[in-house]
């Protein structure tokens, strides 16, 4: 099982949008996929029409039967969801109580590894003990980054944090999210993408109303605007992720 975490220190950068669409694309590629909504806001759960409530709350991290029972099938084949729960706001307490060696999040992920090919984590914003756990157990941490100075600064802080805490096991990549070609700063920052290799995927998810419509349709972009610019950008992003996970010819 490959674990992909959508993470950012900053809120409102398009983590949930990316998580839902990438999970959908993973399932569409024929792979068994689980999207875990770790954000107590429950936006991924909302997008997939599943109630953001989990029996047992954050106890699912310790009880595998509760964890399995909490999983919900979505409207799309091969795509399941572990919904959000308000009790996740106290996830830090749960993680802090344990030693790093007994990371309950890592244990839960290990328990799921035979049931799914991909696990997509929709992480809450912030930098905390949960972030450390995510960096420790994800194969790839993907940071959506708005092409602004502040967002780039945030990305740098994430990189520094990862390095400082020795969390370099997982790979870290970023991509431009909510990009607006009409804005000078966006254009200029995106033009410098060559200097940001290999950290930055050469993908720009545009800021478009069709992306915002996900909240109205409560479905992934591809289901209602399959050939749209945003959907095409997510296709390209997914291709890059797969290429990173499975380099050509490397898996045979």
């Amino acid at each position: 099982m490959k674990v992909l975490a959508l993470y950012s220190l900053k809120g409102g950068v398009g983590k949930t949008t990316a998580a839902v669409n990438l999970a959908y694309l993973a399932a569409q590629s024929g792979a068994r996929t689980l999207l875990w909504d770790l954000d107590p806001q429950g936006a991924s759960s909302y997008y997939l029409r599943v109630a953001d409530k989990v029996k047992g709350g954050r106890k699912i991290l310790h009880q595998t039967d509760l964890l399995e029972a909490a999983i919900r099938g979505t409207d799309w084949p091969l795509l399941d969801l572990l919904p959000a729960d308000l009790s996740y706001r106290n996830l830090e307490i749960e993680l802090n109580a344990e030693r790093k060696r007994n990371d309950p999040l890592a244990e839960s992920i290990r328990h799921l590894r035979h049931d799914y090919d991909y696990l997509v984590l929709d992480c809450p914003p912030g930098i905390s003990r949960l972030s450390e756990s995510i960096f420790a157990c994800a194969d790839l941490v993907l940071v959506p980054t708005i092409p602004t100075v502040l967002a780039m600064r945030t990305l740098k802080r994430v990189i520094d944090f990862r390095k400082k805490h020795g969390l370099t096991k997982s790979r870290l990549r970023a991509f431009f999210s909510m990009a607006d070609q009409r804005k000078r700063m966006h254009k200029e920052l995106m033009a410098r993408i060559d200097q940001m290799q290999p950290l930055m995927f050469d993908v720009r998810v545009p800021q478009l109303s069709e992306v915002e419509l996900m909240g109205e349709y409560r479905a992934p972009l591809h289901t209602y605007r399959p050939g749209g610019r945003a959907a095409v950008a997510f296709d390209a992003l997914w291709d890059k992720i797969v290429a990173l996970f499975y380099p050509q010819g490397g898996e045979e």
């Binding site: 024929g30 090919d117 991909y118 797969v242 290429a243 380099p247 490397g250 898996e251």
Partner: peptide
């Protein structure tokens, strides 16, 4: 003809 993927694996 399947692209590299868990299913192909």
């Amino acid at each position: 003809q399947l692209p590299p993927s868990p299913l192909r694996q």
